[in-house]
């Protein structure tokens, strides 16, 4: 019995020391981690909607109201330049080839896709993972929101984007996601803006 208590005590001391060491290192790093997280998300938003200078996240209720059943859209931000609303960014989670894939799409107020950026993915290196490369993401830039986007090997028309070779699942997942966002923007957000302007 005595030995048990002794062992427990020693183990307790070790864990207590470990916990305090971790507490110290957490206090050193936590602020920086939060800052780095914020910067990363800010940078991503700037990347997909470069005309905006400031972003304001829509709250839960507003988000629900806009997306309805499409709960895979997890976040919408309004982008402002000065006090003008210039566009929106959307975070969406879709099913890629290797698992869930989260990406961000920006749409400007004049009805153009301003960019996409893949945030989290588990796609095959060299195939689906190429969805993070500029040759793919840049092909979405400037596409109008009023026509369905399709992916082809050699994009020519205004609604065609670059397909990823041998990664149809990834390509389709992203293109379908962009089309959903496009639709939701046209139905719920583009009109609203007009109304707000009138007010």
């Amino acid at each position: 019995m005595n030995e048990t208590i002794k062992l427990a005590l020693i183990l307790f001391i070790i864990t207590a020391v470990a916990a305090s060491v971790l507490a110290i290192s957490n206090s050193v790093t936590s602020e920086r981690i939060a800052e780095a997280d914020r910067l990363a998300s800010e940078r991503a938003k700037m990347e997909v909607l470069d005309i905006a200078e400031e972003f304001k996240q829509l709250d839960e209720n507003r988000l629900k109201e806009i997306v309805g059943d499409n709960t895979n859209i997890t976040e919408i931000n309004e982008g402002y330049k000065g006090s003008d609303l210039v566009g929106y960014t959307f975070n969406i989670e879709v099913n890629g080839y290797g698992g869930p894939l989260t990406f961000m799409t920006g749409i400007s107020k004049d009805g153009k896709i301003t960019g996409i950026k893949v945030l989290v993915h588990e796609e095959t290196p060299g195939l689906g993972a190429n969805s993070t490369r500029p040759f793919f993401t840049d092909s979405f830039k400037g596409k109008p929101v009023d026509s369905e986007i399709t992916a082809v090997r050699e994009p020519k028309a205004d609604n065609e984007v670059q397909a990823l070779t041998s990664a149809t699942v990834t390509t389709n997942a992203i293109v379908d996601g962009v089309n959903l966002i496009r639709q939701i923007y046209s139905e719920k957000l583009s009109n609203l803006e007009g109304m707000e302007v009138e007010r």
Partner: peptide, 14 residues
């Protein structure tokens, strides 16, 4: 068609 396509066969699938 598109939904059933997979990595290696994607080019021929289209």
């Amino acid at each position: 068609t598109a939904a059933s396509a997979t990595v290696a066969a994607a080019t021929s699938a289209s």
